[in-house]
Design a protein around this nucleic acid. Structure first.
Lengths: 169, 169
DNA sequence: AACGCCATGTAAACTGTTACATGATTTC
DNA sequence: GAAATCATGTAACAGTTTACATGGCGTT
């Protein structure tokens, strides 16, 4: 059921085509939700049928720009404030981290180093998002969310460094 | 494909019945992976057919205790060390946090406070896990993983407090 | 006119949840 | 002996991924 609200929420940020949503899922939302175009296009059709979004423009290559309707905005708000959140998560990386103590020291250190390299790339990418946000086209209130991402990744980076140092002994 | 390795990994920690695995998924693994018994029992049957686990004991109420085989351990190691991790995540809470700036200040503050209450419960639960780990029955190398969970939740708690304070102005 | 990217859509296979179903053992 | 919990399984449905399919537009 979350996909519906993910799409609704992204469209509430700015009207977009299905193609643009697909890219936003890959870029901004990859750390919490993911969806392929094969899921997005049918969902847009369903949302349109429910009058929660509408086509506000046709562009090149028969692209359709969607925007949320008033009803869509109300439904998004209702979900965000009134529906009890599902707190369960699904993270293969989390599972791997949980199981890493089962490995012998060499393998363990190798996987921690692989993870560390990835976290550092992630932090660099988030730093760029943060730097590029001053000259954003629209007033962006999402700076704190980026900041949270940076803090989370920093904690993970430091923890990985500690584990690597500890297993080097 | 991760479910297979989640089950294999939990059995590598200690031999268990399907019922016990279900509980472990709910308790220790709820922050990164989740599975219901309806998924676990068929997976155990498949793992047994692939000779990665075996039944090592029959208990009361026709319960079966499974343990990983040597082949299972090798396969788990191969996955952890050699298979490129899928870094994508699935977290409804993350999605909600990402969309919260769309709400007006009152609603936003209310959702942050709901989240804060939940994070504080989570931290309390993790504190208990940490405290109860000294007198664990088996040598546990999972203390750092618990520590990481605590640090992550602490960062989130502090961030939520900041947002609440900021929106109170 | 060939290549690459933009853009949308559908079908089949796989994964995960909810609901149905049954029986054993312990506790009161 | 009734109720609660332990314990395992299957079936129907919902959600997700992978693969298939098609065509438009811009560049070289």
């Amino acid at each position: 059921m979350s996909l519906r609200y993910a799409v609704l929420g992204l469209l509430a940020r700015r009207p977009s085509t299905g193609y643009e949503l697909t890219q936003t899922f890959d870029r901004s939302l990859r750390s919490s939700w993911h969806a392929r175009h094969s899921q997005i296009y049918p969902e847009l059709a369903k949302l349109e049928a429910a009058a929660l979004v509408e086509v506000v423009g046709l562009g090149a290559r028969r692209s359709k720009t969607y925007a949320v309707t008033a009803a869509g905005r109300a439904e998004l708000r209702r979900w965000l404030v009134e529906v009890e959140p599902d707190r369960s998560q699904r993270s293969e990386s989390g599972l791997r981290l949980f199981l890493t103590p089962l490995l012998d020291p060499d393998d363990r250190q190798a996987t921690y180093e692989r993870d560390l390299a990835h976290v550092e790339l992630e932090l660099a990418a988030l730093g760029e998002v943060q730097a590029g946000m001053q000259n954003a086209p629209e007033p962006e209130a999402f700076a704190p969310q980026v900041e949270l991402g940076i803090r989370m990744n920093t904690v993970l980076r430091d923890w990985l460094r500690e584990q690597i140092k500890a297993s080097a002994t």
